[in-house]
């Protein structure tokens, strides 16, 4: 399982950095592992940030897997809903739900829980 933890504001200035990090996330071997982006610490998501997330979702899809987005703050969920791009991702409240879904249990031994 590969989890990218994102913190801060994703706008026209910072979206390229997120794009690079998403690229690195999806290149990590094995490329069929569960991939997730933890957006719980994101306080703002602009269309430029949405665009790089959508590109990553398409890339993950081409790899035969879903891109999971974690975190339920309005700053993230509202842009996704308004643009209808929430359909491109598997949205989960947090890492616990992802682990529950992947392992069928609540084990947190393999991924450090972000603060």
């Amino acid at each position: 399982m590969h989890v990218l933890v994102v913190d801060g504001e994703v706008d026209t200035l910072t979206a390229p950095t997120l794009g690079e990090a998403l690229g690195a996330l999806l290149e990590q071997e094995p490329t069929d592992a569960v991939a997730a982006v933890d957006l719980d610490g994101v306080g703002f998501l602009a269309s430029s940030g949405l665009a790089v997330l959508i590109r990553a979702a398409h890339r993950a899809e081409a790899q035969g897997r879903a891109l999971h987005l974690l975190g339920g703050s309005r700053a993230v969920t509202r842009p996704l809903e308004v643009t209808g791009s929430d359909r491109l991702f598997t949205l989960l409240p947090g890492l616990d739900e992802l682990l529950g879904r992947v392992h069928g249990d609540r084990s947190t031994g393999r991924v450090r829980r972000p603060d």
Binding site: L45, A46, R74, P79, V82
Partner: peptide, 13 residues
């Protein structure tokens, strides 16, 4: 509020 913040950001960018 969230929509306006994002719209203003988009317009300015």
């Amino acid at each position: 509020i969230s929509d306006l913040r994002m719209a203003v950001d988009e317009a300015c960018a």
